[in-house]
Design a binder for these strands. Sequence first.
DNA 1: GATGAATGAGTTTTCATTCAT
DNA 2: AATGAATGAAAACTCATTCAT
Lengths: 197, 197, 197, 197
Amino acid sequence: MPRKQEVNQQIRDERRERILRVAAAIFAEKGIAAIKIGELAEAAGMSQGLLYRYFSSKEEIFAVLVEKAVHSLIRPMHDILADTDKSAAERLHDLTRLMLDDIQACSQRHRLISQAQALPGQTKEALAEMGNYLQQGLCQLIVAGQQEKKIRNGDPNRLCVLYLSTLQGLAASLHLFGQPIRDYFPDVDTVYRLLEA
Amino acid sequence: MPRKQEVNQQIRDERRERILRVAAAIFAEKGIAAIKIGELAEAAGMSQGLLYRYFSSKEEIFAVLVEKAVHSLIRPMHDILADTDKSAAERLHDLTRLMLDDIQACSQRHRLISQAQALPGQTKEALAEMGNYLQQGLCQLIVAGQQEKKIRNGDPNRLCVLYLSTLQGLAASLHLFGQPIRDYFPDVDTVYRLLEA
Amino acid sequence: MPRKQEVNQQIRDERRERILRVAAAIFAEKGIAAIKIGELAEAAGMSQGLLYRYFSSKEEIFAVLVEKAVHSLIRPMHDILADTDKSAAERLHDLTRLMLDDIQACSQRHRLISQAQALPGQTKEALAEMGNYLQQGLCQLIVAGQQEKKIRNGDPNRLCVLYLSTLQGLAASLHLFGQPIRDYFPDVDTVYRLLEA
Amino acid sequence: MPRKQEVNQQIRDERRERILRVAAAIFAEKGIAAIKIGELAEAAGMSQGLLYRYFSSKEEIFAVLVEKAVHSLIRPMHDILADTDKSAAERLHDLTRLMLDDIQACSQRHRLISQAQALPGQTKEALAEMGNYLQQGLCQLIVAGQQEKKIRNGDPNRLCVLYLSTLQGLAASLHLFGQPIRDYFPDVDTVYRLLEA
DNA sequence: GATGAATGAGTTTTCATTCAT
DNA sequence: AATGAATGAAAACTCATTCAT
């Protein structure tokens, strides 16, 4: 019955995803504190007991949620860094577009990160690491860009912090105020100007 | 003999402030969901019962906290708008400095706003109003600045959203990552550049 | 300063009465469980602390309230029993009128008695005693009336129970349903018919 | 394997009934104010948490208790009214017997009604409606009985009020004084005499 | 594997009573 | 004597987690 096992595994994966998706939705609507296991199980169309076969605790769900959010930030950054065909300035421009698009598509994912402080130490550390990774990668690009004379001068770390904070702020605003922000969401070039020489 | 009324009132005011201060501190450390009435009362050096003479519920404490945070944003904005002696560009520069200083001094206050979604409808609406007020005031200044040819062209609302989001993002980052961010906190001119012509 | 003491005592008496009056009013409106010391003190126009100089506990207030209600039932009964000039039948007729008038004037007082079970043992016993006293007195009158051939035959205790329950029921109904009952409140003769030969 | 749905429902129903039964018993012994959720849960042999799966609040338990009491009054009245084979006088006699028997069997149920004032507005209104229904039905019968010359003359509403109050009073007395009243509980004919021509 | 009833520890909230002034 | 702030014990209520079926 190897076929059966495969099917089983697929069902398991789907369910896991569903739980995470529903959790993200509830979080988006009411904040992290409002995620109740009961509500979550119901919204995911399963019993509470079953939910515990997929995650060992509520905290774990949060942790995975944050981890996924983190990866969705790291992956594009990684790709951009690896894309050595382009100039640093071009890559920063690409990164900016990527991020802005992603924020508009799923602002809650980004916002989730800013609530991670409520989580246990391990997750927080992972988060800090991710922050460092992002910052370091970005710094490299900025330094390279500065050498290309395409990126403005100044401490690259400062530029980094400003740039990343701006992105995070946009995600938060978008989420908190919704349509009014969406209507006036800044375009790539406006944000990129933060970095431009 | 009963205590004199004014003395009483003074004590009341002090206690109320203390509760809010302690709540803000706990929030800063562990997030809004972690504020337990018991812990709060203990940290404020009073019984739980007494705390309920000052606030009718936990929710009310949150609401007041957010409201105060909102006012601390609105007031400086208001002052800047009223300061008609200066040019629009100067005033925007001043506002930027004011905000950055305030964020560095009390990032949790700013961050609190981004957790307001957990609150009941009324508070959320007040928040949205405040957002509108800020945005409108800022837009006026930006339009005026554009006429002075000191502020870059483009839809003023878009600039607004970007500018305010950047500030909020800085507050969030500062809070979330702490010292690393503080070390590279951007200076006024770097942020102001978002607006500059 | 004997005059001063007299005045003081008068003030004390008035306050005591006021507390009881207010307690009775709250009870009337919301039931015995709803009497909160804080509310009571405020409605009586004094501080909670002062209230405790007049009554040592909430329970005591209830006890006194019930006791007063009991006495207001016992006294007329006593008077009627003592009024040996009239025939038993006449006296029963008088008693009926007295009771009905009193119920209409202050139904809550009567109703209070039926909530006395919530009170401590002592008060309950006093209540039981009062019940016995009423029943015995009434029985005497009924037996005398039966000898006069003016009161219907049958076990006098049974008649007693029925008669007293009817009065209590009228008080309860009046209180619970208010005006609709007041409009159709039975007259003396209709009730007296329960006893009449 | 999950329990079968019908079995589950049956367990639920039984538990719900048990809670109500225990609540009624505590009420009977100590009054409505004395019902503590903790005590209730323990007496019903379940945890407090479980109890809240059956009733959303203490108030709701009261409300249901009163509602059930009300229905147990309305149903027999309804049946009697529908029993058109008999004369009005016969039906009133039947109703009287029914009521007296029920009062002796479960006086607390009747007494509960007189504590309904402690409940929220909605329940109180339902109660008033029930009062009206009873009164109207009874009035019809009385008027019919008067036409049959079997029921005494006089305003039927007044007779109604007196009759229903008498029954309520008997329930209250029975409960408050217990055995002494039970020993001398009036028989059907004695009470019926209130109505008889 | 799946259910949802059951638990119980933890949290908020209330309120009679006391106490410093 | 008078106040009303302060207490603390008790109550209501919530919810993550476990467990019998």
